[in-house]
Design a protein around this nucleic acid. Structure first.
Lengths: 349, 349
DNA sequence: GTGAAAGCGCTAACAG
DNA sequence: CTGTTAGCGCTTTCAC
């Protein structure tokens, strides 16, 4: 058969009349081995097309040089950028990433974490689903001594590290900006309050309203999720209620897109009839019409920090203290939420 | 130390006064074992929080139940959707995906494939970088007997399977549509011709122009890549040349976005001054202004087929014949490329 | 039905 | 510097 089993260290050892150990060491650049033999071994390995067997290597060395990652979504600008950054950082640190996708499904999340544990990853980075409440699986991870870092969507658990963006402060800045523009009737499409990003973005909204002495209309704090449908339905309901706010803060950019779709369908105008801003940038916020102002999340930095923190913990497994890093955000101002309300009213007359 | 080594089959065997073999078989549902013992073993394993060790399992069974994937990019709508589909299909087939990202870099691509081989994946799905020309690494994959499936961006190699979209036919339909609208001065921002998607999308353009007896202006076939910058620069150069076409077909949607940016910067209007369409949809093509007509790529189907084909090959390793599947596309018509040229001219007077 | 023996390919610890 | 000895945790024969 063509499909002869793979070449092993032994094969190349025989070829050179040395022991497998010598070959193993040579290939890994172990200082035990003399320059010449090392060179020779490498040459032969190369010629023979030797491919190491990581399963064997990892089994005996009890390290995998891999970090497991669990995210709820891939086809979403925030996550795809985050993932890219995680891959990049890992690559530069000679670590493999084993990515899994929970599809916002708790059971899949658990299954994937079990698989990653079974693969004996050296560490774990996870961004939980919108529904994750049960900590049991994460307790199991901790019990097995695997470093665990939450990123963006976190669970409050002792012994784990977190990397988040400044959801509360970022939202505050956005709402404050809207208020300074003259808006007072402000709504928030707020996702879900049970998850940190939903809660903190709500709190930032509350902070700003309080600071400026504006009342919060409970009917204008609308929960329903983080996707386009949530934005679409949210706005439709707002419209049907007959009591439209002047300004909407959308908890994510898909939610904002949903609002755009609804507004368009209703024949309304942004910013004439309703103005908007959202949390989270995307590659196209600047191309949609009107271009969408937002609170930018530095995804690249999030990914960097998440990986580096995890690596750090892997390398100092016994002395590591859990860290909680919050990355600052910045406002990106484009066409929405950029015209003073007074001017807007003048114009629309 | 808390960090006691993981539980093993032996541990749970001792607990029950049976052999590791019995436990191993029981856990895997091997028919050798009686219902009762199987039940019992599973219960104890559960209670003790046993986590199997896939490295050991795979080492001895010589299968990994994992498919390696190499893509050039993640933060791009096409790839992120494709990836999501691949993950989904694999999940439903109880296979793991080990994803790697080449970042359009040939050396990284090679490194990742070597890692994947070393991890002993059961199969490989790859979408090559824009620069990949050298087949050596893929020959190595074949020599090791690992099923290899190219998706979307393919290399022409005997013994490998491919899943692509109908690039040529899709482009043909788009250009034909533009011609029917009255456009004759047609340009293409064509990516690179050395890669199948660039070449075939060009050929579709050529097919349509030929069919309708329209001349192809060489200055209007512009190569330069598949990203936003290629679109931006391409249009800028077109503009500077003083000889603008009426219609541009962009080889990808980022290229189209680049054109939008350039057009905007120059104070021109779509579709008044220039009309456009592109290959590839995204979550926001419909939100940008004017909304962007395009040739839709069924990414979900691509992912399904790629995984299923690979799995098929894994399971019938000796009898499998390489397959080449081309998935059809459809036109999605929105605001661009939707107004008859005559009307357009009337309007702009 | 169950288990003892052997080995997957590699590395760690120690001896020479 | 090099090699021997023992596993890593699991699965695969093949006896019993």
């Amino acid at each position: 058969m063509n499909k002869k089993s793979h070449l092993t260290l032994g094969d190349i050892a025989k070829q050179l009349n040395v022991s497998t150990v010598t070959v193993s060491k040579a290939l890994r650049g172990h200082p035990d081995i003399s320059k010449e033999t090392a060179q020779l071994v490498k040459k032969v390995a190369q010629e023979l097309g030797y491919t190491p067997n990581y399963m064997a290597r990892n089994l005996s060395s009890k390290k995998s040089f891999a970090i497991g990652v669990v995210v709820p979504k891939v086809a979403h600008f925030f996550f795809s950028s985050l993932i890219e950054s995680i891959y990049d950082t890992a690559f530069h640190n000679n670590y493999e990433i084993i990515l899994t996708v929970s599809q916002e499904n708790v059971e899949r999340e658990i299954k994937h974490i079990e698989s990653l544990l079974a693969m004996r990853v050296d560490g774990l980075i996870v961004s939980v689903t919108q529904q994750t409440r049960d900590r049991a699986i994460f307790e199991k991870v901790k019990k097995q001594g695997i470093p665990l870092t939450f990123v963006d969507r976190v669970l409050d658990m002792p012994g784990t590290s977190t990397v988040t963006v400044d959801d509360r402060g970022g939202t505050f800045k956005a709402i404050e900006h809207a208020i300074n523009l003259g808006y007072t009737k402000i709504a928030q499409l707020a996702g879900y309050p049970e998850i940190n990003i939903g809660l903190n973005r709500y709190l930032g909204f509350e902070d700003a309203m309080k600071k400026y002495g504006l009342p919060i209309n409970r009917d204008w704090v609308i929960y329903g999720g983080f996707g386009e449908d949530a934005g679409y339905n949210g706005f439709m309901n707002l419209y049907k209620s007959g009591n439209l706010p002047e300004f909407i803060f959308a908890v994510t950019y898909p939610v904002a897109l949903g609002v755009y779709a609804a507004v368009d369908e209703l024949g309304l105008k942004i910013p004439g009839d309703i103005d908007i801003m959202c949390f989270g940038n995307s590659d196209v916020n600047r191309f949609i019409s009107p271009s969408l102002s937002c609170v930018n999340q530095p995804t690249e930095k999030l990914g960097n920090i998440a990986v580096e923190m995890t690596l750090n913990q892997i390398k100092n497994i016994d002395s590591f203290e859990p860290q909680h890093i919050e990355v600052p955000t910045e406002l990106i101002l484009r066409e929405t939420c950029s015209v003073f309300k007074k001017n807007l009213e003048k114009k629309s007359i």
